[in-house]
Structure formats: C-alpha cells, structure tokens
Design a binder for these strands. Structure first.
Lengths: 184, 184
DNA sequence: CTTCGACATGTCACTACTGGAATGTCAGAG
DNA sequence: CTCTGACATTCCAGTAGTGACATGTCGAAG
C-alpha cells in the first residue's frame, strides 16, 4: 500500500488535484514507485473515504483539489517512522541469468552487454533528470536528490556487474568469441 | 509472467513436483523472484494446460512429477533470447526518503542507519548462502553465482549510499546530533 | 466558429500476487 | 499402535497493478 503514502506525502507539501499529482509523479516518485492514472485516481477516492484527505475546493472542468487532513498527516508520519520498508526484490533481469545454461555462451554475453547498455542509458536519463530539476527549492526536491544518487550508483553497479559477469561467462566457456580484439 | 518462465527454467534442468520446486525456489530463485506456494501450484496447472509441461508420472501422496515439453523448452528459449527483461523499480525504502521533510533530521538519520544495517545483514545472508551451495555442480548453480554476486554488490551499494546520505542530511541540518563522537 | 491540445476524472476487465485454510498420505520414532 | 513431521496438493477471498476506454471542459490559435 505504498501508493497511498506516496500520495499522502505529495499532498503534505502542497494541495493538488489528481491531474497535478500525476504530473508531479512523472519525474520524481515514478522512478521509485510507478503508478498508472487509474490507480492514482482510485487511491485518491479511497484516501478521501478514509478521511485522510479532503476535497478542499472544486474548480473548473470538474477539478478537485485535495488537501491532507490531520489524520492523513498522522498516518504519513506513522508510516515513515514505524513501518519498516519492505524490500522488493523481483529482478526479471537476474532471473534469466540462472538459465544461461539453456543458451549459448555467446547469447549469454550478448544479453549481458544489452543489460550493460540499458544500465548506461538509465544512468544518462537520471543524470539528465538531475540537471533538469532546480538547485534546491523545496524539501521534496532536496531529499529526492538522495534517491537520485541511489539511482546513479545503481546504474554504475549494473554496468560493472555486467562487465564482470561477461568475464565469468567467458572464463567458463573459453570458446565464446564475441570480443573482436581477440581473434581465434 | 516471469514465474511461468522460472518454473520452465527449473524443470529444464530436472523434472520435479510442485513441492520439489517450492524447495528449490527457497534458496535460489526466491532471491530474485519470490513466489508463494499457491501461486506456484496455480502456475504449474496453467503451464500443463498450455502444453508447456506434462505430468510425467504420479507417485505416492498424490505427487505429480512434471517435465518440460518441447514446446516448453522453445518458450523458455524465446523468453531468454527475444523478450527484453522489464526493469522493476519499486523501492519502498527510497520512496520514504522523498518525505524526509516530514520528520526530523535525527529521525531521518535513524532511518538511514537502519537501512544500512538491514543491507549489511542481507549481505551476510547472501555470503552465508554462497558458502552453503556446492562449489559448482550444475549450470543452475554456476550461473546462480552471478546473481549472488549481484546481490553482494547491491548490499555494499546500499550500505555506502546510506552512509553518504547520512552525511548529506547532516550537512543540510547541522543541528542533528546522532553522532556520539561530536559533542554539541 | 471550429478545432485542437491540455486539463480532468472515472470505469472496466484482466493478471499477478498474498496469505490462509483445508485436506490428505506416508515413514519413522516411541 | 499412535503420533509427529515431512510430503503433497487444491482452493479461495482479497489486494495491487496494468492498459485501455469513455467522457467531458476549457482556452487559444486559426
């Protein structure tokens, strides 16, 4: 139920509509907790039903501006301080590695190279994102940078690991010949 | 739908029953793709319906030993070679970081320290796991070690990042006093 | 005045995953 | 002979997440 708290957290900084929140999400929270539009609106409804947020005003085009209530703020604090975060470890990418025995060493290496490149691209994307966001502004941005740094380090880890893993696969099957520098 | 392929992959090495697979999962795939018992049995049924696996024999206590079919092996290869892995990025732990503005710097630092310790513990667990599994044996074990190394590096990343983040939080709020070495 | 794009919300069917309960078998220890 | 624990499967209700579709408003450009 983290989306619930993500919304509560965003609304704690500033009141906003579902549409606003969707936009805010895009280059911040979506990087650590993606959500679709339908999920977001649904959760806002449930949050309002539970009294954790309220419709502070209704604007043009059916716009509903939500604001967090005292109960909501309390719930957010409780989540931040008392609820241990659940480590989510589902790595499609690593799952495949277990089954490298089913494909050739060359195919395995090609796979790892693709992963390395994907990680590099992700690193670039995050670096770009870092340049885009203003120097500091609000709390949200300041602390978001901590998460961004995590992403940058993670991207580096992926690249280095892939490099290492390619070496391992080659060591395990010396016949593999994807390196153009070493002719047979 | 990765569980489907995880099962196909396991059965590609050796035929097994649902119960066997559940055990196999525990200290291997569960680290990169957890699954509950109900999910596993359900998926086996669907896999059999789809003709990707078959019941090769029925033993005592209703035991059904499944084996992968040619279609199943083909599906596994296809998944490994042609389907790009979906990066899953849902980090409850990082989500909370965005909302550090809602709690005190001391609380934020305490949170980061807990994360650091959790990562250290996870590292230990994986190191233990590495000692437990036999030197090499089958393909599955050999390549599983690549995933294990990823876990070890990831654990180190978490620890180092947490250390760094604590420094950042302190720099942002110099009043924070959780470091016993620097008296006020 | 029309059309287009941004604003804005809601709903639906589907899949994946969680957690728990129910049911039963078989081998070995006492 | 009985009990326990490992073996073994099935079902179910509930939640979270996905992707697509439906609906409608408003301002500005042409």
């Amino acid at each position: 139920m983290s989306l619930r708290h993500a919304l509560l957290g965003l609304l704690s900084e500033d009141p906003a509509s579902g549409y606003d929140l969707l936009k805010l999400f895009e280059n911040s929270l979506a990087n650590v907790w993606p959500a679709t539009q339908s999920q977001l609106y649904g959760e806002l409804g449930r949050l309002a039903d539970a009294g954790l947020i309220t419709v502070r005003s209704e604007g043009a085009r059916g716009r509903k501006e939500y604001a967090v209530t005292d109960a909501g703020r309390e719930e957010l604090r409780h989540w931040l301080l008392d609820v241990p975060p659940v480590p989510i470890r589902r790595y499609d990418m690593l799952l495949r590695v277990f089954f490298f025995g089913q494909i050739s060493a060359d195919d395995a290496i090609a796979y790892l190279r693709e992963q390395q490149q994907a990680a590099a691209a992700e690193g670039e994307r995050l670096a770009e994102l870092g340049k885009m966001i203003a120097p500091h502004q609000d709390n949200f941005t300041v602390y978001g940078r901590l998460a961004l740094e995590w992403g940058l380090r993670s991207s580096r880890l992926h690249q280095e690991w892939a490099e290492w893993a390619i070496g391992e696969v080659k060591a395990h099957d010396p016949a593999a010949n994807t390196d153009p520098c070493e002719p047979g």
